[in-house]
Design a protein around this nucleic acid. Structure first.
Lengths: 152, 152
DNA sequence: TATTGTTATACTCTATAACTATA
DNA sequence: TATAGTTATAGAGTATAACAATA
């Protein structure tokens, strides 16, 4: 088999694996949406809510979500309307922290559990599979940057 | 260790794995966007373009993309403007097929290769890793439905 | 009557630019 | 001068509803 053929085959397999990965990702996304829907939060709001630890400067949230500060303002407005977070003044008086309210903490606990329970990795894989998967995913994410351990 | 603790640990691990998976998915998405950008197609257009085999009824494309028929009309308009696909009448006279033009075929070939070459699974994993990953991803996608092997 | 594609319209998500208040 | 958050506005991506042609 020629070098060229080998390269072709390798590329073809990469394609197939990539597609599988995307497929899994889409199912995971759908799973997230489904798990979160009963709690009445639209997906982006839920993501922000869960990414926010129990308290963080708005700026930090923008970094973790990789979005603009102005969008965080809008997310914060919506979360505040729902009584899930409160803006509390920071040490530096330019800064505002977003802090979970009591209701927020409680909801986070419930959502977090619901999410884990329906996780694809739990429903489709056994212990051995999960043990094998973890290091592969770690290699895939690399040690680039972010890794944004998200709070949930 | 109590049953309850074991359950907690298991859920915690599921959470961690799920987050890793999402992380990988986001990087894969970013990789797709980056690989596709030089060809001048916005991401959703590229996705549609690649999902379309070399020819398919618009309705089928809507199914594969899991989107509304009206959106396919808009995607088809844009791809047609760029000379990448043509609407050809189907057998059933209600149906229109989207078929790649010659330019479309040529572009698809190049994009498809570019995509495979930059794939995360190729850049970060060795042969053994990829061999281990494939069956795990297959389990994860399950045999539900779609699986939509996407044409690229 | 049910289905295909189209049109017009509207909604969601998110960014950009300009602004205010601190630092 | 630079940074945090806000406001107003705009754009991309996508859906809904009503419609014409065909089955």
């Amino acid at each position: 088999m020629s070098e060229r053929d080998e390269r072709e085959i390798r590329l073809g397999e990469a394609r197939r694996l990539s597609q599988l990965l995307i497929c899994v990702a889409e199912q995971a996304k759908a799973g997230f949406a489904a798990a979160v829907a009963p709690f009445g939060l639209p997906v982006p709001l839920a993501r922000a809510f869960l990414t926010l630890g129990s308290s963080a400067p708005m700026r930090d949230l923008a970094d973790r979500l990789a979005c603009d500060r102005s969008y965080v303002t809008s997310l914060a407005d919506q979360l505040e309307e729902r009584g899930l977070v409160a803006r509390v003044p920071g040490d530096d008086r330019r800064v505002k922290l977003l802090a979970l309210t009591e209701a927020g903490e409680e909801l986070r606990e419930r959502m977090s559990t619901a999410l884990a329970e329906q996780a694809l990795v739990l429903r489709r894989l056994d212990d051995a599979d999960r043990a094998a998967l973890a290091p592969l995913l770690e290699k895939l994410v690399g040690d680039d940057e972010a890794g944004a351990p998200a709070g949930w």
